[in-house]
Design a protein around this nucleic acid. Structure first.
Lengths: 209, 209
DNA sequence: TTGTAATGTCTCAGATATGAGAAATTTAGA
DNA sequence: TCTAAATTTCTCATATCTGAGACATTACAA
C-alpha cells in the first residue's frame, strides 16, 4: 500500500508556522474591516455591511468612516486580494524556475493566501463577470494568474502532465483543491500540518503523468 | 507519457446524454423557481428575491404566490437538494456493492446533481451552521452523505486509499472536485464529454494507493 | 494628567427589499 | 371560441439596509 510519506514534498518549515492567515495582534482598522469583508463576501456577496462590521469587531458607523459605500469597500477587498496573490505567487515565480517545483510552491502560496485567492479567482471567473483586458482589475488579475497558467503550460510542454488533460481543467482543479484545503482548515477536522501535504499529494498524483 | 484514455472509466452512455441538469421544456412554475433559487443562493445567499424571480423568468409577485417568504423558499430549496442527492446517491449505493465502483459512480452522481449537491454540502458544513442530529434537515443530510462517507471508509478498510490520507480530507477533496466540474461546465472551456472523465481521473489518482 | 484621534451611541432620511391586494392580461384546455 | 387558472402589472405598507450628522466615550501618546 502506497503511503503519503513516500511522496516528495517541498513544504518548508516556514509554511508550517505561518500556515494560513496572518494572526497579527493589532491590524489597523481599515485593513481589519477589509479582511472581514473578504471573508464575509466570499461566502455571501450581498451580506449586509452590519455583518462585515460585526466580523471586524467595529460599529457600522466606523466602517462607513473608512469606506464611502459598499463599492468602495469592495474595491479595497479587490486591492487586498490582488496584492496578496501578486506578492505570494510572484515570489514563488521569481524563486523557482523548474516548472514542477514552481507549481508545487504555487499551490502552497495559494493555500496561504486562502480566501484571498479563492474569492479573487471566483470573482473573475463567474458567469456574470465579463472579463475584459481593458478593466484595470481584470488586467491585474491576469498578470498574476497568467503566472499560474503559464506554469501549467510549461508542465504540459515538458510532458509532465497526463495526456488528454487540458490546462483549463487543471486550473479548475487547482481552485477546487485550494477550496478543499481552506474548508478543511475552517472545519478543523484535518490536522493543519497535513493540509498542504494532502493537497499537494492529491493534486500532483491527479494530474502528473 | 501516461494518457488518460488508458485509465479505466465507468461512465455509461446515459451520463453523456443527460450530463448535468434536466433541461426539461416545461417544468412547473414552483419547481422552476426553486431551481432558480438554488442556483442563485448558492452563489449569493442574500441575493434579493427579485434576482431569483428573474432567473426563473417569473415576476416577484408570482414567486410570492408560491412561497410565503424567503424561509419558505429556502425550505423548498433544501427539500429539492435533499431529494435529488438522496435519489442519485441512493441509487448508486443500491446498484453497486463493490466499493471502488460504487465510489466512482457516486462521483458521477454528485456531478449530475451539480449545484444541488455542492450547495447542500456547503450549507451543512459552513462554520455558522451548527449541525445537530435532532434537526430534520440535518438528519436527512446525514442519511445521504453517510452513504458517501461509508464508501470512503470501505475503500480505506480495503487498503485502496493511499496511507495517511484521512476520510475528512477525501470528503473535502470530493466536494472540491465536484465544484471544479461544475465550474468547468459553467465556464464552458472544458468539453462536456471530458468533464466526468477528468474528474474521476484526478480524484482516483489523487487518493488511491 | 491632558489633549487628540479614533471609535461608539443615538438618530435620522433616503434607498432598497419584502409581502400582498386588486384588476388586467395571458395561457391552456374543453 | 370561450372559460378558468395562472401570471403579470400596478400599487401600497412595512421592514430592513445604507450613509451620515452630532455628540459622548475611549485609547493613547506627550
Amino acid at each position: 500500500m502506497e503511503n503519503i510519506s513516500q511522496t516528495k514534498c517541498l513544504i518548508s518549515e516556514k509554511y508550517d508556522i505561518v500556515l494560513f492567515e496572518n494572526m497579527e495582534v493589532m491590524k489597523d482598522t481599515k485593513q481589519k474591516i477589509t479582511d472581514a469583508a473578504i471573508a464575509i463576501f466570499n461566502e455571501d456577496f450581498s451580506a449586509p455591511l452590519e455583518t462585515v462590521a460585526e466580523k471586524a469587531e467595529v460599529t457600522r458607523r466606523t466602517l462607513h468612516r473608512y469606506f464611502k459605500d459598499r463599492n468602495d469597500l469592495l474595491a479595497a477587498c479587490h486591492h487586498t486580494m490582488q496584492e496578496s496573490c501578486r506578492s505570494s505567487i510572484g515570489a514563488v515565480y521569481a524563486t523557482y524556475t523548474e516548472p514542477l517545483e514552481r507549481f508545487e510552491h504555487m499551490l502552497y502560496a495559494a493555500i496561504d493566501c486562502g480566501v484571498k485567492f479563492s474569492f479573487f479567482h471566483k470573482l473573475h471567473n463567474n458567469e456574470h463577470h465579463n472579463h475584459s483586458a481593458g478593466n484595470k482589475n481584470c488586467s491585474d488579475y491576469d498578470r498574476t494568474f497568467n503566472k499560474f497558467k503559464s506554469t501549467i503550460e510549461d508542465l504540459q510542454n515538458k510532458g509532465l502532465i497526463t495526456g488528454g488533460l487540458t490546462t483549463e481543467w487543471i486550473e479548475m482543479l487547482c481552485a477546487g483543491i485550494v477550496t478543499a484545503a481552506i474548508n478543511a482548515e475552517k472545519a478543523g477536522n484535518v490536522a493543519r500540518i497535513n493540509i498542504k501535504k494532502f493537497a499537494w499529494y492529491s493534486l500532483s498524483k491527479g494530474i502528473l503523468a
